[in-house]
């Protein structure tokens, strides 16, 4: 299979996972978009990273969501009356769990292709959004989503282990 086909397949897996998590867990529709500017990359985001380790491949999921949007979601989920009551730990908890769920869905899709893996508990941080680049011979899919007017980015990376 060509590298373009691999990337397309990864893209489809990521898109399915993202749409399902936004719809099922946040009850918000997400629409994939190619309309973003470089300025959007400077947004301060809550980032969740889930690593996947398997005998045939390693992979990563990076989910980046703008801080004000996560704050509003966390306020609803945790039932805070005031957005200022939402702490950084709450923001990280929400994005960490969403990235964990996306990781689980992508892993299930990879399993259907015969690739097994385990998920590492998510790393969570508050950082400026970055454009991810493929490392070594890894396949990488970075997609952007509009959800309730907010730009969310999802990057999925997969590298086959060659003996």
């Amino acid at each position: 299979m060509s590298s373009d086909q691999e990337r397309l397949k990864l893209h489809k897996m990521a898109a399915l996972a993202m749409a399902e998590v936004l719809d099922t867990q946040l009850h918000l529709p997400g629409v994939e978009t190619e309309k973003y500017s470089l300025a959007d990359h400077d947004t301060l985001c809550v980032k969740g990273h889930v690593a996947m380790h398997g005998p045939q491949f390693t992979g990563d999921i990076f989910l980046e969501i703008p801080v004000p949007f996560v704050r509003s979601v966390a306020q609803q989920i945790f039932g805070f009356e005031n957005p200022a009551d939402v702490q950084d730990a709450d923001l990280k908890d929400v994005v960490g769990e969403l990235s964990n769920m996306i990781g689980g869905r992508v892993a299930a899709e990879l399993l259907a292709e015969g690739l097994t893996c385990t998920l590492v508990p998510p790393d969570k941080s508050i950082v400026t959004r970055v454009k991810h680049e493929a490392k070594d011979s890894a396949e990488l899919s970075q997609t952007y989503w509009l959800c309730d007017g907010n730009l969310i980015s999802l990057t999925v990376q997969k590298k086959l282990i060659t003996s």
Partner: peptide, 24 residues
């Protein structure tokens, strides 16, 4: 979130009543 077949087999042996994958 983990649908790893080894984990599912292990918890099935331990007699779990049900298995739900996230997102739910």
């Amino acid at each position: 979130a983990d649908a790893n077949p080894q984990i599912i087999a292990t918890v099935a042996r331990l007699g779990v009543k049900d298995y739900i994958t996230k997102p739910f």
